[in-house]
Amino acid sequence: MAIVYERSKGLTNAETHYCPGCTHGIAHKLVAESLVELGVLDKAVGVAPVGCSVLAYNYFNCDMQEAAHGRAPAVATGIKRVRPDNIVFSYQGDGDLASIGTAEIVHAAHRSENITVIFINNAIYGMTGGQMAPTTLLGQKTTTSQNGRQLEGQGAPIRIAELLSQVPGAKSVERVSLHNTQNIRKAKQAILKAFKNQIDGKGFSIVECLSTCPTNWGKSPVDAMKWLEENMIPYYPLGVFRTPEEEI
């Protein structure tokens, strides 16, 4: 009997604290599988953010470091510069990377630090109870935008992949989605490529993963996947925004 799919060795046996149907679990296993497939699990160092994935250090079967809120790229920079042979990644949500951590991510990209950033965009603040995030869509209702987000006064949702694709040092920028198996497989390829860039010393790579938050969106996990496809993808188009070969 050939095994088609089994739990990745890159994950610990800890049960995650994530809500039922949360796509953090899917992103975790894609990262874990990529590290195992590239044979770098034993020299990988992850940097966990603040947000729902704050306890990610319990779930990845490699060395992990917790960072202050939004500062994961800065911590990852330090680790990578001191230990250049290790494979260093940060795993950050949209509250962490697109809000409090915009300075760190933009400057880490400009310096083209040779790190891999996994960015989870679920258009809401999950851990704190469903408040409006910088990535919340226009018209989307959250606990702090009860009539839906308005352009006037609250601004347009921030598109991190497009923003970072303008940075010369951001060598690889890609946006993927986790809403069905086809896109999960594409996301895996993107994450593999982002780690491969680091192994080859190509510089800063980021993969933005569109994700769901069934609990704070007030939807079932299956409906949340549909909502992502119908509402998030039109505003956050999928695709490759930068490759290391292309100079700007």
Partner: peptide, 8 residues
């Protein structure tokens, strides 16, 4: 089924 399962 296994690919999409968030809890492996």
């Amino acid at each position: 089924c296994a690919t999409i399962c968030p809890d492996s």
